[in-house]
Amino acid sequence: MKFSLYFLLILFTISGYSQDTLHRHYILLEQYVKLGNNLTKQDSLNFQFKGEDTLVLVSPDFLERNNNGIRVEYEPKDSLFLEIYKDVVYGKMNSEQREKETMKYWKDEIKIFFASGVPQDHSQKLMEFAKEISSEIDSLKITKVDNKEQSNFMIYYLNREYNIDYEPRINNRNGGYYINWNAKQQIYKGYVKINTEFVKNENDQVQLLFFHFFKSLGYFKSSEKLNCESYLSACRVPRRLTQSDREILKYHYSYGICKGVILKTFNELHESMQKTLRHNPKAQLYVVHSE
């Protein structure tokens, strides 16, 4: 498997017993070579074999000396969760776009600017919502700024009084969101628009505001596998933040998975990790991020 910015690091710990317990650390031969190490005769003499895998004995400080990136422990999930997550990130199972879609995420802090047409209590509610969904996610920072030039996310209401359409590519009558991302699939700019000429009820305006903002955090799609009340369900009903929404968002911003990858790479990652865990339950699995 090849990853543009990431690779998998599998550490095996094998214990021997005498008067004291002895722990020896091994990594896969192919990973040892990928890290730029030349095999020696002593390396070959110390090989261990696990099924079809060849393991190389490494010193306790090997990972620190050879790791040029950030090493994060792999975060396993069950198959049911992963199927829902893939619906949300890559689209429906049979859609043509699914195989080409990439995982998109915010790497930098989200700095929100509210245009003058957004009621103060609506902006306050949105920031409370943002705090609630990001409070347990270290890699997702959301703040409010008072200067448009300092922002990378703009929220505005469109109506007769406030008629500047800052992002006309949001062409749904009631409003929506629009995001931009770079070649690494990192989102760097976003907009949410609510057209209050068509959405008259204030509760509906806030509902839509929360809904579009949540989906803009990962270019999320809908899943028919989720309960209707979820922001990421396929139902057209009032939503609320569910435990499933929280879990999906937290996982999306975990660095225990590869970031910005296509579906094929995502599947290969988990198949490789799960196969390793089935054969070696005590294996320590890591995703290494080069930047």
Rank of each mutant, 00 (worst) to 15 (best):
I155M: 09
S244M: 14
I179K: 02
Y231R: 07
N203P: 02
Y191F: 15
I155F: 08
F198Q: 04
N172L: 11
T196L: 01
P168L: 09
F198C: 01
S244D: 15
I155C: 02
S233M: 10
W181H: 15
E197D: 15
N172H: 14
E167N: 02
N159A: 04
R239Y: 15
G218P: 11
V237R: 13
R160M: 08
Q150A: 12
F198K: 01
N172F: 12
C235D: 14
G218A: 08
S233C: 11
I257F: 04
Y231H: 14
Y178T: 04
D165L: 03
K200P: 00
I164T: 04
V237N: 08
N171G: 12
N195T: 00
N163Q: 04
F153K: 04
I248W: 08
L249E: 02
N227Q: 15
N180R: 04
F210P: 03
N227L: 15
L249I: 09
R236G: 09
Y253Q: 11
N195W: 03
E149C: 03
G190I: 03
Y251W: 13
N159W: 00
C235I: 11
N172I: 04
M154K: 12
Y157E: 05
Q185A: 08
N147Q: 11
A183I: 11
D204V: 07
K189E: 04
T242C: 08
P238E: 13
Y166D: 10
P238C: 00
S223Q: 07
K200I: 11
E224K: 14
S222E: 09
N163E: 10
E224V: 09
F153C: 01
N203F: 10
N172C: 06
I179S: 03
E149K: 14
Q150L: 13
F210C: 01
Q205N: 08
Q243R: 14
I257H: 13
F214V: 01
V192T: 05
S222L: 12
F210D: 01
S222K: 15
N163A: 13
V199L: 13
Q243E: 14
Y178R: 06
D165C: 03
Y251D: 12
K250G: 09
R240W: 03
H252M: 13
P168R: 07
V206K: 07
Y191C: 01
Y178S: 09
L217E: 10
S254A: 06
V206L: 09
S223A: 07
L232M: 06
N163F: 09
